[in-house]
Design a protein around this nucleic acid. Structure first.
Lengths: 189, 189, 189, 189
DNA sequence: CATGAATGAGAGTTCATTCAT
DNA sequence: GATGAATGAACTCTCATTCAT
């Protein structure tokens, strides 16, 4: 597969992302993507064999983009805040239409997929480190950083889900962030 | 709609619940339900016009069943523990097969549906009361019971989702429960 | 499946036989049959799931028809002649267009199919009996009736194949019949 | 078409023969051959325009190879035996995978093709000569050598077909060979 | 009310064939 | 000559939905 092929694949993934954003995961057909890409039916099959495959490519491409800088030069409290703000954006931003599709995908294909699980683990590690650093430098109070990290991530996940299901105001998210910071002895000034 | 009709509808809903439990939400076809109910294709349409409609009827029927006793005669700490244990069951029990379907449904039809949201609100109120009572009787420490209640519920929701997506051990859930109780000044003895 | 269904199935098989006759086996698509039957795409699938299944039903229906009377009251020589004449018809009759399809089917699905093999075995038994009777009543001379029966059937099969592949004149078939009878001591007068 | 072209054509035919051997005739696609030859899709079309064309080239190439020596210095009985043994090999040898494809081809394209018929005629002539010689030298008894030759060839053809369709043991073939020799007054010692 | 045969739109998939490079 | 990406027609199969009985 040549250089041009990779370009085309990228193009398809890009267009497909829009489609998944609009229609979710399960509702998307090969035809939808073919039409969005303005290529031929058979042409798509040169690159992907199913919507699942395409969707996974979309996820993969997102993963590459969403890497954030580590900012490990900041104070633990600020780093935590930065982390939570980042998550808040994910929760609140209705622009991330893709999320519905991601959840649909997750529930449709269940556990066998570490595609999405990977993100969680990375976040967990990052968060745990921040808390450990915070505790070490007396900025935070926490007996079990790992468990606390889990707790925050679960709560954030819950918020995400709720944001998708019902409507969640930005205030509610802020409220929760403040509360979470409180649980490890931090206060927003 | 006569008495017999209501009976039949109930029967269909019952059988349909099994189907949704086995196959999720999106994968279920009218045909599947027709076969499970051993009624005719046309017959089903006399009662329901889509799998969505049927699934909503299933949800409705579940709502009626799942009401739990309030046990307001117990101490706040025990009531909280009871509440969390109840939620733990929901998370851990793989017997609640329907949950996958519920999430699929939620993500497929988005916010416009308060069908599921109702449960959350009820839980919220219940939990808030418990915490308020706990604080009032000096068993618990919490400045913002409502926010704390939200936090716990979000974390529980996150756990549920994770349980569905990946695998979550009972220990992790216990860990989280203990942690949550700690955040409001309680300890499991 | 009711009485009417069986009728319809028969109807489909009948129409399908014509199609297979015209187009062979492999070239026939579900669409061809749908069109020949003037039913809907989905309708055909109520009765059959593949051209293979339909073709086997066609074979089955032919089997039922082609049963010939046993005429065991005749003299062995005449019975043999009757048998061979019957086979000759199969060979010569170009009206049996289906045969091409049958061979195609045989070669496409190989040995695992006793659908066609059954005919051979039945013929073998019948022919062997005739020869044994012929020998017992001194009309025929043959040391190994079974082997002779096999030989005739193989030769007849070869004739059939040749009839399909190239062109075979009726005279050639007659010639062969006479020769075969000669090998067991019989002569056409 | 240059020298290199002929070479390439030969190469394609060679590779294609393997493919036809494995997959039969009808199941082979241009793509299969392209892949087997590791050439480009378009490249194949420079030499052949259809699988039919390629298959015919395969047949042609086989014809050139399969010529056998005449061994006319042997006694007629031995020559006949040699001939029949040769045929037996064709029947029994499952290594001649191409045969299925040949039959498929024959039945798919019917009589208009003398491609395969040629072999039969050559065999017929050879066999007839053997028998005539045998009769002339009193080794054999046969009133109509040509008809007898036909008979044997048809029986052999029938055996071949049966070998492809069902399973035929080597014993059965030996049995038949012995029987055939018996019909012209010969016995295997 | 109830049936289930029938419909037809539409999804997935494959392949011969072309054509710009 | 040679490539292989691209096309689009054709095929299989499934399902929601209707309708005569």
């Amino acid at each position: 597969m040549g250089d041009k092929s990779i370009q085309k694949k990228r193009y398809i993934v890009e267009k497909a992302a829009e489609v998944f954003g609009k229609k979710g995961y399960k509702n998307v057909t090969m035809k939808d993507i073919v039409e969005a890409c303005e290529i031929s039916r058979g042409g798509l099959y040169l690159y992907f064999n199913s919507t699942k495959e395409i969707f996974e490519a979309v996820l993969e491409s997102r993963r590459l983009i969403s890497k954030t800088e580590d900012s490990s030069d900041m104070q633990p409290g600020d780093r935590l805040l930065a982390f939570l703000e980042e998550k808040k954006q994910e929760i609140v931003s209705s622009s991330d239409y893709l999320r519905v599709a991601i959840y649909e995908y997750m529930f449709a294909h269940g556990e066998q997929d570490s595609m999405v699980a990977g993100d969680f683990d990375a976040d967990l590690q990052r968060l745990e480190e921040i808390i450990e650093d915070g505790v070490a430098s007396d900025w935070m109070v926490c007996e079990a950083p790992r468990i606390a990290a889990y707790n925050m991530l679960y709560a954030l996940e819950g918020l995400k889900v709720s944001a998708q299901t019902g409507i969640i105001s930005e205030e509610r998210v802020d409220e929760q962030i403040e509360y979470m910071m409180g649980t490890i002895g931090l206060a927003l000034e």
